[in-house]
Lab assay of single mutants.
Amino acid sequence: MMAYMNPGPHYSVNALALSGPSVDLMHQAVPYPSAPRKQRRERTTFTRSQLEELEALFAKTQYPDVYAREEVALKINLPESRVQVWFKNRRAKCRQQRQQQKQQQQPPGGQAKARPAKRKAGTSPRPSTDVCPDPLGISDSYSPPLPGPSGSPTTAVATVSIWSPASESPLPEAQRAGLVASGPSLTSAPYAMTYAPASAFCSSPSAYGSPSSYFSGLDPYLSPMVPQLGGPALSPLSGPSVGPSLAQSPTSLSGQSYGAYSPVDSLEFKDPTGTWKFTYNPMDPLDYKDQSAWKFQIL
C-alpha cells in the first residue's frame, strides 16, 4: 500500500520538471525561470610600474599592434585584453584634452560664430520673369535699313540677281523696263511654242516681248482663266512685280493683265486636223540634229 502513496517519478516537459499528477507549474501565473544575472567585471587597478610601461608604449604609438600589447601584458602581468581596453580609454582621454585646449585658446566670443544676415524675399530687387527677354536684342539694338529709291541700282540687283547668272552684270533701268511683257505680243502666236536658250531668258530683255519668248507657250493655258476669275487675268510678269519692288498687295496686282481676252486664246483648236509644230532653235543647249523629232501629229 505504501508504494502507491509515494509520488511517481519526475517528468520533464519543455525542460520543466513536473512532479506526478501536479500540474501547477503549467499555470499561467507561474513564470518561467529567468537567466542568472551576469556579474559585473571588477575594475582593474594599475600600479605605478604598470602605468609607466603603458605610458611609455603610448608615447611611441597610440595604436599598438597585438604583438606589442602581448609583450607589455607579459611585463606588467596583466591579460592582453586589459591592455587593449586601457589604450582605448587613453585615446579617448587624449582627444578630450585636445578639445579642452582648443576651447581655452579661443576667445569668449569666438564660440558663437556670427551668422550672415538672411536676406528677406521682398527687399532684394530681383529681375521680373513675367516678360520673356528678347534673345536677339531686336527691340533695343536692331534698326531696319532704310528703303532705297525705287530706281536705285541696288534694288535692281536684289531683284534680278536671283534669276540671272553670276557672270552677267546687273540690268540697267532701261533693260528692266523691257522685262514687262506686252499683251499683244504674248497673244499673237498662241499655238507656236519656241524653246529659246537659257541665257536669253536671263539677259535678253527682248525675249519677253517677242513671239518667240519663253513664256509665249504658256499663254494658251493662262488666258482661259479670265472668265472664271470674273475680271482681268493676273500676270506674273506684269508691271512692277518684276520691277523695283516685289512687295505689292494682291489688290494692286488684280488690275494688271496680259491684255484683252480673245477667243483665239482658248485651248480649242480651230482646225482639228492641224498639227502643233515646235520651232527648233539652233541655240538650244539640247543638241538634236534631227528636226523631225520636234513634229508630232495630233490624233
Score class of each variant (00 low, 15 high):
D284L: 15
A15D: 00
A198K: 05
A35K: 08
P240I: 12
V226P: 02
P31S: 10
S128D: 07
N6M: 13
P263R: 14
D140K: 06
L179P: 05
G231R: 13
L237W: 12
K75R: 07
Q297S: 10
P220H: 08
S213Q: 05
L18S: 01
E268R: 09
A114P: 07
S143Y: 02
Y288G: 09
V30A: 04
M283G: 06
T194E: 00
I298P: 00
S169E: 08
W86H: 14
M283W: 09
A158Y: 12
D130C: 05
T273C: 04
M283T: 03
S262I: 13
Q106E: 04
G20M: 10
T273M: 10
Y63I: 13
K120E: 03
M283I: 10
R98K: 06
L299T: 01
A196P: 03
E268C: 11
E70V: 11
S139R: 06
S204N: 03
V13R: 08
A92Y: 09
G217I: 09
G274S: 03
R48I: 09
N14K: 15
F201K: 03
A200K: 08
P125E: 03
G183K: 10
W86R: 13
V66F: 12
E53L: 07
Y4N: 00
S49L: 11
S241P: 05
Q101P: 11
T159G: 00
A189K: 05
Q62F: 04
L253I: 03
S12E: 06
N14E: 02
D130A: 10
P172T: 06
R48E: 12
R40W: 12
E173N: 12
D65M: 13
K88W: 13
S213G: 04
P147G: 06
L222F: 10
Y208Q: 02
E173M: 11
P190L: 13
D284W: 14
S141I: 08
S292Y: 13
S167H: 04
V226M: 06
A260I: 13
E53W: 10
S124R: 05
S257M: 11
D265F: 12
S164Q: 01
T47K: 06
E173L: 11
K75C: 11
D140F: 13
S199H: 09
S150H: 07
Q99F: 05
T123L: 06
G259S: 11
P144N: 06
K38N: 05
P285K: 14
T187R: 08
R90L: 13
Y258D: 02
Y288P: 05
T154I: 14
P244W: 12
S262P: 06
P244C: 11
P7R: 05
S257G: 05
P282H: 06
P190C: 12
H10L: 15
P7H: 09
R126A: 07
M193S: 00
P31G: 05
G274P: 03
N281I: 15
Q106R: 09
G122S: 08
M193L: 15
S206D: 04
K289D: 02
W294M: 00
S139D: 08
P170W: 09
I76Q: 12
V66M: 04
H10K: 05
P116K: 10
S22D: 02
T273W: 12
P170L: 06
P205C: 14
S12I: 14
S182C: 03
S139A: 06
T187V: 13
R40Q: 09
